[in-house]
């Protein structure tokens, strides 16, 4: 069951990225002032690619995901460019967005009940979802629904179709939500911590389905999580978010093995690892800053072990391909992956 072999699967990529986000900014007006939850985020996802978006609680991961889909609630304002298949979603109207959300981009939430209606049978919900965006007969819609359930590994889909959400276990419910997301073979799936509440065997099952989908249909995936282990196992590329900004991005190997931003380094060190059993874990000092009261210059400065005088200025992005937002990046170790250094 445990195959650590690398997978082929990127041969589908071609030309322009599927999604290109430039200078995404999302603000909320609150009693205490304007909260800039997302502050100038740039992202790129190619067809069939899995991008992991990590960062601590409140760093703006979910708001980023919601902004891409135009799902930010009214007091919030979204700015910047969201180029999806050549179209700027930030300028698209609500009707157009609703169509894109159903047919081209799907979202999976942490709580499957965000997607599922507890009082309707799975069949009703899935058939409605099919008919909303495809001109097919009810029979055909039903067949597609059944196939989608089978695809996410739900046994006896024919009978399960008639069941209600509460008759499923948590893991199965999440798989139903994923099956609904897969109905129209979307070009992009945005998944916000969909496996956080599940245990590892069920999680592995869902990751398997997701991987297969990306490989077979070229669907791209934005996987939002704070679990570095899941992301490094699943994703092609990683973007690390801190206080509303992307502070480091690159391939999984680059970011996990040779992190350059001190925050990424801190995150990786605080994950328990096999060769340091029983010893105190490294922790990042200090607290997540309030978005209302960010330090001047680099937002990580008060917690950063490498901070110097010039960090009072705002750091730009350095590097190419593997990029980081830091004036004094971690050195690249001379040999071997960084995770082994502290052994």
């Amino acid at each position: 069951m445990n195959q650590d072999q690398p997978m082929k699967g990127q041969q589908i990529e071609a030309g322009a990225p599927l999604l290109r986000v430039e200078g995404l900014r999302t603000e909320f007006e609150t009693r205490a002032g304007a909260v800039r939850a997302v502050d100038g985020v740039d992202l790129e996802i190619r067809r069939g690619e899995i991008l992991g978006l990590v960062g601590e609680s409140g760093s703006g991961k979910s708001v980023t995901g919601l902004s891409l889909l135009g799902l930010v609630d009214p007091p919030g304002r979204v700015g910047g460019r969201i180029l999806f298949e050549g179209e700027d979603l930030a300028r698209a109207g609500e009707r157009r967005l609703r169509h894109i959300r159903g047919a081209r981009i799907a979202m999976i939430f942490q709580d499957p009940m965000m997607t599922l209606n507890p009082v309707l049978s799975v069949e009703t919900q899935m058939v409605e979802a099919v008919l909303a965006h495809a001109r097919v007969t009810r029979e055909e819609a039903r067949r597609r629904s059944r196939d989608a359930l089978a695809r996410v590994g739900i046994p006896s889909p024919e009978e399960r179709l008639r069941a209600y959400p509460h008759q499923f276990s948590g893991g199965m419910r999440q798989r139903v939500a994923i099956a609904i997301a897969l109905l129209h073979a979307p070009a992009l799936i945005i998944a916000d911590e969909p496996t956080t509440a599940l245990d590892v065997t069920i999680q592995a099952q869902i990751l398997f389905e997701v991987q297969k989908l990306c490989r077979e249909t070229g669907t791209a995936l934005l996987w939002i999580t704070h679990d570095l282990a899941v992301v490094s196992t699943l994703a092609d590329r990683i973007a690390v978010m801190y206080a509303g900004r992307i502070v480091e991005t690159g391939s999984v190997a680059e970011v996990i093995d040779t992190p350059r931003h001190p925050y990424t380094r801190g995150l990786i060190n605080s994950v328990p690892s096999r060769n340091r059993r029983g010893q105190p874990l490294a922790q990042i000092p200090g607290m997540t800053p309030s978005l209302l009261d960010l330090p001047r210059g680099c937002a990580f400065r008060p917690r950063c072990p490498r901070a110097q005088e010039d960090c009072q200025e705002e750091p730009g992005l350095f590097g190419a391909g593997h990029r980081w937002r830091c004036f004094h990046p971690e050195p690249v170790p001379a040999m071997g992956p960084a995770t082994e250094v502290r052994a």
Partner: peptide, 13 residues
């Protein structure tokens, strides 16, 4: 849940 994060900023209150 997420909404509390901003409000817990240290020292601010």
């Amino acid at each position: 849940m997420t909404a509390t994060v901003g409000a817990t900023g240290q020292g601010a209150r």
